[in-house]
Design a protein around this nucleic acid. Structure first.
Lengths: 203, 203
DNA sequence: ACGGCGAACATACCATGAGTATGGAGAGAT
DNA sequence: ATCTCTCCATACTCATGGTATGTTCGCCGT
């Protein structure tokens, strides 16, 4: 039988992570103190340092949290039903919507490379949303939908374009309009890379 | 006649900026202390705070330094001789090479949005390298070389793609190869957006 | 030439916040 | 019952950004 104590421990840990996600999103990594995070989780720094080795480790836990949420959503779509092309378009749309989430945008996209170091961030992203972009592109090529471009760099280009575009969307006065524009441009570029049937329906 | 004292002042100021560029590039913004920067410039923190209002202001000075260097190079190329298409390709190539400079990459591309805040970074970039990408794209459209895509968001997509790609290049074991691949993919996409003459010679 | 004024620094200090050392409380094992 | 070990609180240390104040020295008016 699961110990009551373990429940408590798990609960405070997740409270700390939730608190970290909120505050890091609002004030950024440098602008958030550990005392604040602990206070918001109604514990002290002692508890924090019991569960995490330091501020960076807590940030990475917060990163994993927001990243995995997005990943699950995207995974269902990209590896779901439909033709590779349809799934790619749907995934594109979903990713842009995900980037509109302030937490994902600030923590996973903007601050993570700086806080965790680009190398480590790359590793993490490799297994998550970037991995999906990459595998999605790969399936498009395998299915003969698009030209055989170098997958690694093209995926990197796409991912970079999308994430920076997402920032543009989020900080725009009319996010919906800009979001639609961006999706349109990306789709057009992808269509241009398509081998056949240059017309496409964008839903 | 220019005062001797002003020479000294200007000299220590630029020494501080140079020192900041070096250390921020090597260890990042958070990992660099003001005492270190001052020590490397052979002054004390007092001098630093005489010339700059704080760490952020010093960072922005360092940002301006690396940014203006790149801008001057790009400006000559993008607004130089040749057809809009040729100039765009040359500018593309030059921008990728610029992104290979560790200082530009870390300070101007990666850390600046986090340190200065995205809004302020965007303003600065608007007048610098991003502005060139944007105006370059605009001339391509004006010249009827590419389809009339929404300039603002497309430029943002391009800029994001390029800067993230640059990181990929710089951290690659074979930067030349990856660099060529990326240039190839980008050019291919641009060519696809071209209205006429879908073949192109990539130099 | 000189006195003093102000810019250009240096020095000493303070405040905040990350990280550490230590103590205690309570659940589960013996 | 007590013993232990996880879980967490309290009370520190130390690094660092920022401030307050002292000091030097080139320039300018007289």
């Amino acid at each position: 039988m699961r110990s009551r104590r373990l429940d408590y421990s798990e609960s405070t840990r997740s409270a700390l992570v939730d608190s970290a996600v909120e505050l890091f999103t609002k004030r950024g990594y440098a602008g958030t103190s550990l005392d604040e995070i602990a206070k918001r989780a109604r514990v002290t720094k002692g508890a924090l340092y019991h569960h995490f080795s330091g501020k960076q480790a807590l940030f990475e836990a917060a990163f994993d949290q927001v990243e995995s949420l997005v990943y699950d959503r995207l995974d269902k779509i990209v590896n779901g039903d439909g033709t590779p092309w349809e799934r790619a378009l749907a995934g594109l749309n979903a990713f842009i919507r995900a980037c509109l989430d302030p937490a994902y945008q600030r923590i996973a996209i903007h601050e993570a490379p700086v806080v965790m170091g680009w190398e480590r961030w790359r590793e993490a992203e490799e297994r998550c949303s970037f991995g999906l972009v990459r595998s999605g592109l790969q399936s498009l090529i395998d299915a003969g939908e698009v030209e055989p471009v170098p997958v690694e760099v093209t995926a990197r280009l796409l991912f970079g374009a999308l994430s920076s575009a997402a920032t543009e969307i989020a900080s725009s006065p009319d996010p919906k309009k800009v979001g639609a524009q961006i999706e349109d441009v990306i789709v057009r570029m992808l269509v241009r890379l398509r081998r056949t049937e240059p017309d496409v329906s964008i839903g």
